[in-house]
Write a protein that binds this DNA or RNA. Structure first.
Length: 406
DNA sequence: TCTGGGGTCCTAGGACCC
DNA sequence: TCTGGGGTCCTAGGACCC
């Protein structure tokens, strides 16, 4: 039996949600009605477009592009800051409504959900009607619009929700693939990104239809597993389930683009401490420990380098993460001007299912206790107020900014 | 024009073992 | 002296997503 899948995608999520917050704050201007974007702080070199209004889109502004470029396209563009804690709340509100239809919901990102309604529809219901109902309810109860994709698997539902926007329901059933999907440029296919498009065009694949009709073996030979995925997606093949059960994260990282290039190893180490603290804190919150630590840097000319280390025994202690990170950075930085620095922890294991072999280093119980006490304080009084490193990070950024403004 | 931060997954080469 | 094949683990880097 065919599965009944919906993909719900909030239209211009960050911008819509900010618009609602502003209206709730008593402001009268709805920023959805003007050329506006949500963007990072340009003075901190975080200046990219995070979301855009439909009016901004009409000027050709794209998510992810530098704000400076967006301003060139639209001279009276309004730029607003984001507020992640508010976004999380709006996302949770959306989820609560969707839960009334099925508990098989995969939160694919903060503004996208897959829903599996197979076996959740009454004899007189249709999947399409449910899609319209969900869209209408979200609009009237939450005040923002969504697109809903209706299909028999996740890939097709997702492709469908990406058709014309906003506030629309689209179907993409198997018999509609040639007319609705194969006519689209290859760049529109999920999992075909910036780097693949030119490679595919070079071998004559310009539309999703071109990809679908290509020889699968040829694509696998040329692009490996990615070739297989692209071919299957182009043909509307996707057997993956809606992953509605909570899954532990597979890696936890923290990185920051610095307000200016930093050469000084001492300063970089201070930032590493703040990053270590954040990563360790989040690992502990999830009851996870990391087996591998990676330090990543990006130079001023946008080249990325990374060094990683497999640990003798997994950890979630700030001190251990910091010590390893410092070593990794020492071999990495080589007096390069550093634009971005980050720490990733991976090969995570759950604390309870961890097994200590007799060769493993003894767990530093004293350090564990110290960091546990600090965690409790952070949870009670807020992260930034308690962590010395967190404060240092903030102060450090502000210092740089002050120097810039002088 | 000057490019965020959070993730997942894959690949390729080298070390090492049998 | 010149040399195998298979497997696993580790590391660096990169593609993609939102």
């Amino acid at each position: 039996m065919e599965r009944q899948i919906l993909h719900v995608d909030v239209n211009n999520a960050f911008l819509s949600w900010t618009a609602i917050d502003k209206l709730n704050n008593g402001e009268t201007l709805d920023i959805r009605t003007i050329p506006a974007i949500i963007g990072g702080d340009e003075s901190m070199r975080h200046g990219v477009v995070l979301a855009k209004s439909m009016k901004a889109k009409e000027f050709g502004i794209k998510t992810g592009e530098p704000i400076l470029m967006a301003r060139k396209k639209c001279t009276n563009l309004q730029v607003f800051k984001g507020n992640y804690s508010s976004y999380k709340k709006h996302s949770d509100d959306l989820y609560q409504i969707l839960l009334e239809y099925t508990d098989k919901i995969e939160r694919f990102s903060i503004d996208e959900c897959f829903m599996d309604l197979t076996n959740y529809l009454l004899p007189n219901d249709s999947l399409l009607n449910k899609a319209y109902e969900i869209k209408k309810r979200i609009k009237s109860e939450l005040g923002f619009t969504v697109n809903v994709g209706v299909a028999n698997n996740k890939l097709l539902a997702k492709m469908a929700s990406d058709f014309s926007k906003p506030d629309k329901v689209h179907t993409l059933y198997k018999n509609e693939i040639p007319t609705k999907m194969w006519t689209l440029p290859i760049s529109e296919l999920f999992m075909v990104g910036r780097k693949s498009v030119p490679k595919l065009e070079q071998i004559g694949i310009k539309t999703i239809g071109d990809m679908a009709k290509q020889n699968e073996e040829f694509l696998i030979k040329r692009f490996g597993k990615h070739g297989k995925i692209m071919w299957e997606y182009a043909n509307g093949i996707d057997e993956s389930e809606v992953a509605y059960k909570y899954e532990q994260p597979k890696c936890i990282g923290n990185s920051i683009t610095l307000p200016e290039d930093v050469f000084n190893l001492q300063k970089l180490n201070e930032i590493l401490l703040a990053l270590s603290e954040q990563v360790a804190f989040r690992l502990r919150k999830h009851n996870l420990k990391a087996n591998v630590l990676t330090v990543q840097i990006r130079t001023k000319d946008f080249i990325n380098y990374s060094h990683q280390k497999k640990l003798n025994s997994p950890t979630n202690l700030t001190k251990e993460i910091y010590d390893v990170s410092k070593e990794l950075l020492k071999n990495l930085h080589q007096n390069r001007g550093i634009r971005l620095i980050g720490i990733q922890s991976s090969k995570l294991v759950s604390e309870d299912e961890m097994q200590l072999s007799i060769f493993d280093k003894k767990v530093d119980e004293k350090q564990e206790k110290i960091e546990k006490v600090i965690d409790d304080l952070k949870n009670k009084f807020g992260y930034e107020k308690i962590t010395r490193a967190g404060e240092m990070k903030v102060n450090y950024m502000l210092n740089i900014r002050d120097e810039k403004e002088k």
